[in-house]
Amino acid sequence: MAGLLAQATNPIIRWEYFIDEWDQIQRALIEHLELTVYAVILGFVLSVGLSAVALRYRWSAGPINGFTAFLYTIPSVALFAILVPYFGLSRITAVVPLAAYTLLILVTNFVAGFNSVSPEVREAAAGMGMTPARRVLHVELPLAMPYIIAGLRIAVVSTVGLVTVAAIIGQGGLGRLILDGLRRTFWTPMTIGSLLSILLALALDGIILVAGRWATPWAQRQKSVL
């Protein structure tokens, strides 16, 4: 630890690092994005299934919420670690827990979104002779959209943050820059990794926000239950 004192004068960012290590930064950024996208897609697909079950069979809504809430409270370090014996230090070991953490927020929002469709609107849709499939696709899904988008935003942003933790199992995109810098007591990659991951979260959030506004022109305000 004596060497640390020398590092105290080490500047927080060395700008030439950007040029020298641009490839590495770019790789980390892409990996970060990939892990985020894979995890959210997996979480989204699972959430669609869980939400459908919770909405179709009312009794299952409680247990499903309990299960996803339980997953959410498992410490990230533990969840990444527990899969190491099975999948090694692979991408699967990173993506599965990341997806698991999105379930609570996504399922809660999906269910709330569909439940937000007023009985009168359902009644009117049925009374007009819409088929069940048409009711879901043309009425319920669009009306649930603000909730779905709100859930997606939180899921994506929190996943971007959690991906950095996946660096402890050798994945983690920008998180690897953080760990790498820490190991070498070299602050530039740490600072860059941290800043870029925050910027990435903000950028993705903004993209979904704009896409959501575009997709739901009738909803002026974003609705969220959580």
Partner: peptide
């Protein structure tokens, strides 16, 4: 078929039930 039947019957309810997204 119910769907067919309903398309031939206009239905108005107290809460109107307009589709807010349309």
């Amino acid at each position: 078929p119910t769907v067919q039947l309903r398309r031939g019957i206009g239905y108005v309810i107290q809460e109107v039930g307009l589709f807010p997204h349309r």
